[in-house]
Amino acid sequence: MKKYKLKLGVTLIEILMAVGFLAMAFIPIMGLLGSSVKITDKDQSNILAMNLCQEKLNTALQFEFGAFNSWLGNELTDIEIASETLVLNLNSATHNGVTYNFKLKVEDREGSFTVASRDFTAESGGDATPVASWKFSAPTKYSYKGLVHRYTMTVEWKDKGKADDKKAIVKNYTLVTFKAKLK
């Protein structure tokens, strides 16, 4: 009698189990892909917000120091005025379904400079006094006002598809810099 060698191949159960394993592996992968698309979308809108904020602030800084002075204290449409502070609600911009709102605040930044002056009265040689014998007065603080402006540019936006969602988080990004009244 011819003896048949039993050759076992891939059974149906094996195939089903293999397919099951693969399916189980795919579930988190698909979830991951979905969430990474969302993260990439958010990243894109964040980067765009930063770029737009910089662009608007750079534009504002191009104006000469006194450009905003005439508006300080005046009532203008769409402009909130506080004491020595100017708040401009700039035009909003929409990119890829996300609307970005901008607000520029220009305000006076008061301060003081600490300066120790050369004390000629304490020197005996006048202008000809050698450097090693120079005398200086104690440092004095000189207060200033209207010489430095603080620029605060704020951009606010909501994530894609959440513009009408009142509960959605309003994201914000703020840049602060100073502009001095230079010669």
Partner: peptide, 11 residues
């Protein structure tokens, strides 16, 4: 912020 401080120093 660093740029702004440089402005004050120059002033």
């Amino acid at each position: 912020l660093a740029d702004g401080i440089a402005q004050i120093a120059l002033l």
